[in-house]
């Protein structure tokens, strides 16, 4: 099979999957937005992102900054970064949010998720001093407006995940959080806790299984 055919095939199968609309490969399966959860939704930040995108609205940016910057800073410091460097990297992350606002697609990720990926990439670049190989971007052709069902679905998923994470036994929740703080690889967590690598991996697997189960049963 030559490369051209391979890519065409991949593209076709992606389109036929109805990507992003509850396809079967999503692991945090959830039932989709319901009236109650939608009206109870905590602030989802998509409107603020829209105001930045379309009007370069500084007050919307200030709101996002007030909420996310202190969380990103805390997240970086949990990963072992000094306060001074965490402050600097957080400012860069928020500046990137402003500059690349057009690239945020609310049908594919929540605002928190998008900010997490920016922070993670800055951390790899500035703190670990490595390159970050990213998967090839999918091209979907021009799309006027993101599908509102997809947008809601992303925000709903974020909330369900937060609830599911809170319900995990403390040790498992702690391990998942630590895996994401990113100071330690799984083998380094093993060395630090004195637990065998296999135990760390199976605990993380168990935690992910519980998360999936919680996402399956609303």
């Amino acid at each position: 099979m030559d490369g051209q055919a391979r890519f065409q095939e991949t593209g076709a199968s992606l389109r036929s999957m109805g990507y992003g609309l509850g396809n079967s490969t999503r692991i945090w399966k959830h039932k989709g937005p319901t009236l109650e959860t939608t009206t109870l939704a905590r602030k989802e930040w998509v409107a603020e992102m829209d105001r930045i995108k379309s009007h370069r609205d500084q007050s919307a940016f200030a709101e996002l900054f007030a909420h996310f910057a202190p969380r990103v800073k805390a997240f970086l410091m949990k990963g072992g970064t000094s306060e001074a460097l965490a402050e600097e990297v957080t400012q860069e992350v928020m500046a990137t949010l402003w500059t690349k606002a057009e690239m945020f697609d609310p049908a594919r990720a929540s605002v928190a998720t998008w900010i997490f990926t920016i922070a993670r990439n800055r951390k790899i670049d500035v703190i670990r001093k490595q390159r970050r190989p990213e998967p090839e971007e999918l091209t979907w052709g021009p799309e006027a407006e993101p599908d509102q069902a997809d947008v809601l679905s992303q925000q709903e998923e974020q909330e369900q995940l937060a609830r599911a994470l809170d319900k995990l036994p403390e040790k498992q929740r702690d391990l998942v959080m630590r895996a994401y703080y990113g100071d330690l690889s799984h083998s380094e967590i093993a060395a630090q806790t004195g637990l065998p690598l296999g135990t760390i991996k199976s605990r993380i697997r168990l935690a992910l299984e519980r998360l999936r189960h919680a996402m399956d049963t609303p």
């Binding site: 999503r26 945090w28 202190p70 969380r71 306060e83 990720a109 998720t113 974020q158 937060a162 994401y180």
Partner: peptide, 18 residues
């Protein structure tokens, strides 16, 4: 989905004042 879990972890952080 795993990136979404990372987003949730950030959202769950106790704020560290800037």
């Amino acid at each position: 989905e795993f990136d979404a879990l990372g987003g949730t972890v950030v959202e769950e952080m106790d704020a560290m004042p800037m």
